[in-house]
């Protein structure tokens, strides 16, 4: 994937920058997943994970 992007756009980034970009995307995805799982109020998500939220002691729930 990295090689495809680099060849199409003609951009070559260093390994360090590549790591930072990928880590940033990864953390954003993880953060969003955690938010939906542990803090979202959608009934389907909340009801399914209600017990898990309470089981973690520090995750607020209503």
């Amino acid at each position: 994937m990295e090689k495809t992007v680099a060849s199409r756009l003609g951009i070559a980034v260093s390994e360090r920058i590549s790591f930072l970009i990928k880590s940033g995307i990864f953390l954003s995805v993880c953060g969003a997943t955690l938010f939906f799982a542990l803090a979202a109020s959608y009934p389907a998500v909340h009801d399914t994970l209600h017990n898990a939220r309470h089981a973690l002691a520090v995750v607020p729930c209503h």
């Binding site: 590549s18 990928k22 995805v29 993880c30 009801d47 209600h50």
Partner: peptide, 30 residues
């Protein structure tokens, strides 16, 4: 999860692996 991702994203093989699935969260049905 972060540790594995950090190893995967580092080095030559970094581009070959897609994003790791997010944490599997267990939940009991109410």
């Amino acid at each position: 999860l972060g540790f594995v991702a950090g190893r995967v994203f580092t080095g030559a093989r970094a581009g070959e692996v897609a994003l790791i699935a997010a944490a599997v969260l267990l939940g009991g049905s109410a």
